[in-house]
């Protein structure tokens, strides 16, 4: 029985032949991914290539692609590659603001105000993302902090959006 190697040790930037940098061109990544699919997919592998192994290697290709295409997963992977652990708790200088986010949201009664608040969070995420893109490569401490913040706001938004969806 075959077991996957621990994929978390992999460097997905190298895997796609990309420079180790948070800034990557998503369109190029997509084309690299699709071209590799065309070569490696079990449906198109011929001759010696056994479909079973093709399955596993394409599975890894899929995981790598998904990780790099998502801005937050990519940030976390970037940290891992740079051997910096991911913060699993909010840094103390943000903690208060973030925990208040829930209370603030709940205290808003008006629907359009609620939406405005969410929009401001989405914009905040965009701001943080562009900060990440512009950070110096060796400013890992800041990178780590912003990544954690992004993850936090994102899970808050996901929760609220799902709630709204299931309400009507």
């Amino acid at each position: 029985m075959y077991h996957t190697q621990d994929m978390s040790d992999k460097n997905y930037f190298e895997f796609f032949g990309l420079p180790i940098s948070y800034n990557l061109d998503e369109t190029s990544l997509m084309y690299i991914y699709l071209e590799r699919q065309r070569k490696e997919h079990p449906d198109s592998c011929t001759g010696d290539c056994v479909s079973f192994f093709a399955d596993n290697s394409v599975a890894e290709l899929n995981t790598a692609y998904q990780t790099l295409m998502d801005p937050i997963n990519r940030a976390e992977h970037y940290l891992k590659v740079r051997r910096v652990s991911i913060l699993d708790q909010l840094p103390s200088d943000f903690a208060e603001e973030m925990f208040n986010m829930h209370q603030k949201y709940d205290s808003i009664k008006n629907e359009s105000e609620k939406e405005k608040f969410l929009e401001s969070l989405r914009n905040k995420m965009k701001d943080i993302l562009s900060l990440l893109h512009n950070l110096k490569e060796d400013d890992l401490e800041k990178f780590r902090k912003y990544t954690c913040l992004l993850r936090f706001i994102n899970s808050f938004l996901e929760k609220v959006e799902l709630n709204a969806y299931s309400r009507d």
Binding site: H3, M7, P42, D55, N56, A59, E60, N62, T63, Q66
Partner: peptide
């Protein structure tokens, strides 16, 4: 919406 084939542990 994870692309297949996929392996997760």
């Amino acid at each position: 919406n994870t692309p297949i084939p996929t392996v997760q542990t």
